Every structure is written in C-alpha cells, then in structure tokens.
Simulated assay, not measured.
Amino acid sequence: MKPHRSDTHVRLDSVTNNALDDAAGPGGLTVGATASRVEVTVRTLHHWDAIGLVRPSGRSTSGYRLYSAADLARIHRVLIYRELGLSLDDIGALLDAPTVDMTVPLRLQRAQLLDRISRLQAMVDAVDRMIEAASAGTLLSAEEQVAIFGQRWKPSLAEGAHDRWGDTPQWAQYAERAAGMTPDDWQQIADNVVTLEHDLAAAKRAGVRPGSTEANALAERHRTSIDAYFDCTLSMQVCLGKKYAADPGFTAYYDAIEPGLTLWLRDIIDANARDRGVDPDSATWT
C-alpha cells in the first residue's frame, strides 16, 4: 500500500514546483522581485540572509542579491514552518540537517497545538461559567441551593439579586468568583453564615451594645462574609445595613432568627464604621 502523504507534504511539493516554474532564468530574481513573489518584506529577506537562514545563491554584475529557484523553494519551506509555529532557529536546523525527517518537528508542533487547544478550551469553559453565573446568580441547581442554604432559602432570591444588581461592578466580581466555586465552597460559605447569624443572635440576646469591642468584631465578621462575594468596604456595608432595615424581606429574614436582630445589626454596622472613620449618615456605595 502506498504510504499516506500529509497535506503539508503535498503543499511542500506544490510550492517547490511553483518556485521552479517562477524562477527568472539562470540569473534568478532580485531581492525586491523575490519579496513580492513570496509576499514578505525586503527587510525580512535581508534578515534571513544575515542569520544564514536563506542566502541568495547569486549576485548580479552590480553586486545585487539574486535568488534562484532553489532559494525560492527554501523560502517557501521557511514560510510553511513559520506557519506551523517553529522558531527561525529550529527551521534553520531542520532545513540544514543532513537527513530530514519532517515528522519529528511536525509531531512536536502537533503536541504543542493540542496543548494550546486544551488551554483555550479551558478558558472557553471558564468564560461560559462566568456568563452563566452572571445571568443566574449561581451555578448551583435549585435542589443544591436548598440543600446548602436551608429550607428558608428560595432559589428565586438569586434571580431577584441579579435583577437588582446585575449591572454593577460588584455583581461582575461576584459572578467571576461564583464561576470558580464548587458545591463544597458554597457549603463552607453557608456554614460560616449560619455560625455568624447564631453569634449575632446570641450577642443581641445578651445585650451587647453597638460600638463595644465585641459588637465591632461581629460587624467585621459580617463584612468579611460579604467579601466572599465581592470586596465590601465599610461604606458599602453601611448601605447594606440600611437596606436590611428598610426592606421587608431582609427584616423578616433576620428577625426570624432573633426578634429585633435587623435593627441591631444595622446599629452595630453603623457604630463600627463610625469608629473606623466612616460617617454612616453620609455613606455611599463606594
């Protein structure tokens, strides 16, 4: 059976034959004509001559470079190998080797291309996950959300959050982080929130006063819990505390944990911000 010839082998033969047909007689082509014929710059041909990659075989009576049919064939081989991604040094070594096994560099280049395809596919997958996270609010299924966040959690809350904040930089940051989170990551976040809410409720029942060391530490833990989604400044946290107190949904959520917890949480957030140089009355979402 006749061995299979790759497209690259066929192309090499084709360009070699074309080069032989196009050579301008025994004198050859000038550097300008050669550059035009092979569609590279004169400067490129000069560079290849200087590094010994493609040296013209002849000179005119005036001393100008003249490229023969064999020179053009070598140039075309250089262009093909460059298209495959080989360096000029590797191309020179390949062309000047006593016996040329074309499969060696081609197999190497194939492996490199497959690796690049794999990395690009991973990037595409990551972008797809970011798009999905940005649109849906989370990559968890409805069942996974309830299992992780508890029976009080409503999957529609994620959609509502997207409708409310989907065009903000913070949502974009959240989507980027959410795209890389696994169910185990979400479970850790949920467990931390449950612990924080338990400690907030216990402190409220114990009469911990806003502005105290203990209250400020809890306020900072609350801000850190927001940092899991996006970078939350003191000023942003104050705005969130006000939102909790003004929104019936948030109020019902926190007050179900401990009566009056919503307003107390807002107050410890404000007091902590004030102690750290942020005026709660003039705080903005920055």
Rank of each mutant, 00 (worst) to 15 (best):
E132S: 11
I131V: 14
R82I: 13
D71T: 07
H47N: 06
L88V: 13
D21A: 15
D101F: 08
T16M: 02
A35G: 00
T16F: 03
S135M: 09
E132C: 02
S57E: 09
R37K: 13
A126M: 02
L113P: 13
R37N: 00
R107E: 09
L108H: 13
Y67C: 02
T44D: 05
R59W: 11
Y67N: 10
P56I: 04
R129D: 08
Y64K: 07
L108E: 13
L113S: 12
Q121G: 04
R55S: 11
Q109V: 13
L29T: 02
G32L: 00
G25V: 08
G28M: 03
A23W: 08
L95S: 11
P105V: 12
A35F: 04
T16C: 05
S14H: 15
S57R: 05
I75Y: 05
A133I: 00
L45K: 00
P56A: 01
D125P: 11
R107L: 14
G92T: 02
H47T: 09
D115G: 11
D115A: 12
T16N: 00
L106I: 15
L29I: 03
A70N: 02
L114Q: 15
A19E: 03
V31E: 10
V40M: 06
D128I: 04
A70S: 03
D21C: 10
A69V: 14
T103C: 05
T103L: 15
T99F: 10
D21W: 14
I75S: 00
T61R: 11
T103I: 15
Y81Q: 02
L29R: 15
E39T: 13
R107T: 15
S57G: 15
R77L: 04
V15M: 06
L88I: 13
L88W: 04
R110C: 04
T44G: 08
R59C: 01
L53S: 01
L106P: 01
H76R: 10
A93K: 12
H47W: 05
T41S: 13
M102C: 04
N18T: 01
S68D: 05
R82V: 11
V42F: 10
A134K: 10
T30D: 03
L20T: 08
R119A: 14
S14Y: 14
V31M: 07
T61D: 12
A23N: 11
D90S: 06
R107N: 11
R37H: 14
T34V: 06
V100P: 00
Q121D: 14
P98F: 02
N17S: 07
E83L: 00
Y64C: 00
L29D: 09
D89N: 07
S14K: 12
A93G: 04
L86P: 07
S87L: 08
V124L: 14
V78H: 04
V127R: 03
R65S: 06
I80Q: 05
S118I: 00
D21I: 02
A35E: 05
V78I: 15
G52W: 12
L53Y: 02
D90P: 14
T103Q: 11
A126S: 06
V31L: 04
A35K: 08
Q121A: 14
A69D: 13
A50M: 03
R119K: 09
T61C: 05
R129V: 10
D90E: 15
L88A: 01
D13M: 03
R55A: 06
A93E: 13
D125M: 01
N17E: 13
Y64P: 00
P26N: 05
L12C: 04
S62I: 01
R82H: 05
L108I: 06
